[in-house]
Computed example of a mutant assay.
Amino acid sequence: MTDPEPQIPPDDPRRQLAVVRPAVDDDLSHLALAGDIYTILLSGKQTDGRYCLIDMRVPPGGGPPPHRHDFEEMFTILEGQLRFTFRGEDVLVNAGETVNIPANAPHFFRNVSDQPARMLCMCTPAGQDEYFLEIAAPVESAAATPPEISEAEQNARRQKAARLAAQYRTELL
């Protein structure tokens, strides 16, 4: 006796088509974080927690501190060049290229050029979007300049990010 063919689950009519038009959607969340501007294009709420998609604008010198988390993270570079440090090894990634960070691996990225960089980041499953909403400062648009904040405010934000990291399956290194 052979096992029956696996069946695809039925369509879930509760889930809707999501179309994001950043040029006209004024309800997107734009966030200033670590000197970068992140726009949440698709949240975990919109994808039933399967993934989130974030448009990241990274100025020269920008990027997060070393960290790791228990979810996959894929970056497609749209503009510019970034240096990704993965398990202590550096790799330059240029516009048109994609890099995938496996779950649990230590990593970070930095814009080492003198030009702004832009990339799409997909996290699967979702959750990073919620973390960013908790720790980042809202800004008006993707083209906004990150707000000037004092050293005390920077320290307070770093402490909040560290305090909430485990809740969002992240470890700051």
Rank of each mutant, 00 (worst) to 15 (best):
P59Y: 05
Q81M: 14
P147C: 09
T76F: 12
A136N: 07
N100I: 11
V91H: 06
E130L: 02
K160N: 15
T124V: 14
C121Q: 02
I101R: 00
V91T: 14
R163T: 07
K160A: 15
G63I: 03
A156F: 04
R118A: 03
T98M: 06
I149Q: 12
P116K: 04
L78K: 01
N100S: 12
M56V: 07
Y131V: 05
H107E: 12
K160M: 15
A126D: 00
Q159K: 11
P59T: 05
M56D: 07
V93A: 04
G80S: 05
V112C: 14
P125L: 10
N94W: 00
F86R: 02
T145P: 01
C123N: 14
D114H: 10
Q128D: 02
G61S: 08
T76Y: 12
A143V: 11
M56A: 08
V58Y: 02
E153T: 10
E79N: 03
S113N: 09
A103E: 03
H67S: 07
C123A: 14
G80I: 00
A136T: 08
E134P: 06
C121I: 02
G61I: 06
P125Q: 11
F84Y: 12
C123L: 11
N104A: 02
E148I: 14
A142K: 01
E151A: 14
G80K: 00
Q128M: 06
A137H: 06
E97S: 10
P65K: 07
D90T: 01
R57F: 07
A136W: 05
F84V: 00
Q154Y: 06
D90K: 02
Y131M: 07
N155K: 09
R68D: 05
D70F: 05
D90C: 01
T98H: 04
D70H: 11
I135P: 08
E73C: 13
S150Y: 09
A162V: 13
Q159N: 12
K160P: 12
P102D: 03
A137W: 04
T145F: 03
V112D: 15
A103D: 02
E140N: 04
T98D: 05
E79L: 13
P106S: 08
P116W: 01
V139D: 13
Q81P: 09
N104G: 01
R83K: 06
E73T: 14
H67M: 08
F71Y: 12
E72D: 15
V139F: 13
Q159P: 05
D70G: 13
A143L: 13
